[in-house]
Design a protein around this nucleic acid. Structure first.
Lengths: 233, 233
DNA sequence: GAGTGGTCTAGACCACTAA
DNA sequence: TAGTGGTCTAGACCACTCC
């Protein structure tokens, strides 16, 4: 601690973490400015900046120009979830992947989804439901609406062998998405597909993706009972 | 597009995003190296680096030394969830917050949790259950074990008026945490506390936090039916 | 107005790894 | 071994915002 020993931003970050954790810098308290820290650590200001910016992104510090940097009083923990393609998730577990299309039909989404997808008059949609399996057992039931007005090419694809998810990723990349997670009791339909009792607690991911201001697709994925999504913070 | 017009890293990032989205740089394809892009964009290499690093963190690019940078073939999208303190989440909705401790008892965690918390021989634990309310209605039921060997000070706190969550945040900061999300049918106990039917689908967050290699606490939070966790990607 | 973080620059060296 | 990204430096200017 006596000599300059923090020559890279990760070492600086670790040292700042240590001081926060050891209450040398208490929650809510100001810490020295970048210039002073750079001198203390014997490195360039940019290096300190990189470290502090990272900690700020992680929610441990709060930074404001002129006001300076303080230790967050109530660190809002941020969990980063990876949303992989189902196929990749299953194959990464070393299981065999299967896909089956269940239904394909033109139509109009239910009112609530129409609103969420900001459907315009004249927009055309197709609904595709499917099941994806791991080692032959149902893994996820997917109920999806595709906006053909945004993705006309989808009208020529029946999604009989290729999942809509993968086809869209390749053919209709999105710029933004809204995603929600919740729990739902299995309906008879969901229970039938997933092979569980009606009423079983099902983990659901609900997503709408956008190509700028045009909705591409709205989808609900019902995972098999016991599914657990994990990460670290 | 003809003249140098990308003088800051966000503009560079936007332009790279645009080229990926427009398939000027197709998935799986290599893009020019940082030096060349810096010349094309009329900025310093560090600026390009910042932009590309950001896109790499977001999962849109894959970078390897010597191999260069390519557009991700299967972009693993990353959703960042904010895990706020319950009190903050409720107050931010403009609702009144309430806390009630239900149970406080010394004991030993169930086998599975003991293992996850890497309990050592002689470790002492206390179990605290509580309910937090929004405008008087049950919002979340919390079932928590605290490792008193890691946090001795917790033994002197009854958590009668202060939630264990908030007390721990202030008094036993963690360095890491594992977090999981899943759906569960309400047990009689959970249903009783949350005021719903037994069997209702409940969104559950399951967490273990660590002070380096010592577990601090393991907690399960059962949210009221209909709870939905949202973010954007 | 002044102090802070945010960013850019030009150059340099290093670490990794594909060829 | 050579090419790429990863990082550091020293200096500079800018943007924001508290006083």
């Amino acid at each position: 601690m006596t000599e300059a020993a923090f020559k890279n931003w990760q070492a600086v970050q670790d040292e700042v973490r240590r001081r926060i954790h050891a209450r040398i810098w208490a929650p809510g308290e100001m810490i020295p400015n970048e210039q002073d820290l750079a001198e203390e650590f014997g490195c360039a200001r940019a290096t300190v900046n990189r470290a502090l910016r990272n900690l700020s992104d992680a929610g441990l510090l709060e930074r404001r120009r002129k006001a300076g940097t303080r230790v967050a009083l109530h660190p809002v923990r941020k969990a980063t979830l990876n949303i992989p393609m189902i196929r990749k998730e299953i194959e990464d577990r070393g299981q065999s992947y299967g896909y089956e299309r269940l239904m394909y039909r033109d139509g109009v989404p239910p009112e609530e989804l129409s609103r969420r997808m900001k459907a315009r008059a004249g927009d055309r949609f197709v609904r595709v439901t499917s099941v994806q399996t791991a080692d032959g057992a149902p893994f996820v039931f997917e109920d999806r609406w595709i906006n053909l007005s945004t993705v006309p090419a989808a009208a020529a694809e029946g999604f009989e062998t290729v999942s809509a998810n993968e086809w869209l990723l390749t053919n209709a990349p999105y710029t933004e998405g809204d995603i929600g997670f919740f729990a739902s009791n299995a309906s008879d339909e969901v229970a039938g597909v997933l092979g569980c009792e009606p009423g079983a607690a099902i983990f659901v991911i609900d997503r709408v993706t956008w190509d700028n201001d045009r909705s591409i697709t709205g989808v609900r994925q019902y995972f098999r009972p016991g599914y657990r999504m994990e990460t670290s913070i």
